[in-house]
């Protein structure tokens, strides 16, 4: 299969879906500019023009509501946020309207607002430009929330979102945009709520989201050299959550590490741990280990930033700890996202 970069896979999904469905339009701050949201909206602008790729004023609150209103009248807005942190300004429309619309108006139709939200992490983006809000949105019934890790999933999950009638938040870590991988040429949807086994292994399960899938795979590669089998589960969507794939793996391995790009409290890692506790109370041979952000906002200074984000090395340590496996010489790992450079 031909290979695409993650950003190209997104662009292709948008263009193919817009060609087949005239009700889709792209909207966001600067989506039609020369940069085109990391190159993901340039081709759509070129092919469909500014009547379907709409630059919006800096009004996240109203624009999120506008997307709901347009969706209620049969359109399919694809709303883009170049920093997910700005979505806090859009919370009312996303949570109080989009998520609840179908239910609170008597199940006569949903509002298919599809949101792409970019996580800015890296290059000292700091406290308010680095956050991944998948756990926040994952809390609310009525939304789908996905964290595509691979180019194929970036395309397939977006295609699926643009064909459903459920409002969806797709979290894109910008550290993934330049990663390459095989991507089907056709617009093939990938269903929400189905995780993917990224690496098979029988000793310990690592459940990961987004960027952490790649860190977990690197950890698995390293530990494979020690004869340790790490099963890496790319959860792909936070809501709905594939409980089955998690439980079946943990039932085999008896050990669980959850690697996330957000905080531990009330978050994705807590949910995965709870699912295992509820469904497999006797399966764990060791307590769950959660690798999450430390309980502080994201710092800017380079050494602090490096210490802030969990990475492959910490996953290796956690797995070894669960296996009483001693130590492994950790070569200086760069984070998967370390290729992100400024000025932006």
């Amino acid at each position: 299969m031909r290979e695409l970069r993650y950003c190209e896979a997104i662009s292709e999904a948008i263009v193919q879906c817009m060609a087949e469905d005239p009700s889709i339009f792209v909207a966001g701050e600067g989506v039609d500019d020369p940069v085109g949201t990391h190159g993901t909206t340039k081709e759509a602008t070129r092919l469909f023009g500014r009547s379907r790729v709409l630059d919006l004023p800096n009004s996240e609150n109203a624009c999120a509501g506008v997307a709901v209103g347009a969706a209620a009248q049969g359109m399919r807005p694809l709303v883009v946020y170049t920093r997910q942190d700005f979505m806090f300004l859009a919370m009312d429309a996303v949570v109080n309207l989009a998520a609840k619309w179908r239910y609170m108006y008597g199940n006569k139709g949903g509002v298919p607002v599809v949101t792409r939200a970019v996580v800015g992490r890296g290059w000292g983006q700091g406290a308010t430009h680095s956050q991944s809000l998948h756990s926040v949105f994952g809390h609310f019934p009525g939304l789908y929330v996905a964290t595509p890790a691979s180019p194929a999933d970036a395309k397939g999950l977006l295609v699926q979102a643009l064909r459903l009638d459920t409002p969806t938040v797709l979290v894109e870590n910008r550290g993934l945009y330049q990663l390459t991988g095989p991507v089907p040429e056709e617009a093939v949807p990938i269903p929400f709520g189905r995780g993917r086994i990224a690496r098979h292994g029988s000793d310990v399960t690592v459940v990961a989201a987004s960027l952490m899938v790649h860190e977990a795979e690197r950890a698995a590669d390293l530990l494979a050299g020690q004869g340790i089998g790490v099963e890496v589960i790319d959860i792909r969507s936070i809501r709905p959550l594939d409980e089955t794939i998690v439980c079946e793996s943990v039932a085999r391995t008896g050990r669980l590490v959850v690697a996330d790009t957000s905080w531990a409290r009330y978050g994705f890692s807590a949910e995965v741990a709870a699912v295992v506790a509820e469904n497999l109370p006797g399966a764990l041979r060791k307590p769950v280990r959660r690798l999450t952000l430390p309980d502080c906002p994201a710092p800017v200074s380079m050494p602090l930033e490096q210490a802030f984000h969990p990475n492959a090395g910490r996953i290796v340590e956690a797995c070894l700890d669960l296996l009483d496996g001693g130590e492994v010489e950790l070569s200086a790992f760069d984070d998967v996202a370390s290729g992100v450079v400024g000025p932006y």
Partner: peptide, 12 residues
């Protein structure tokens, strides 16, 4: 919030 929804509906 209904104000922005109406704008979106009108835009559609």
């Amino acid at each position: 919030e209904g104000i922005s929804v109406a704008v979106g509906a009108a835009w559609a």
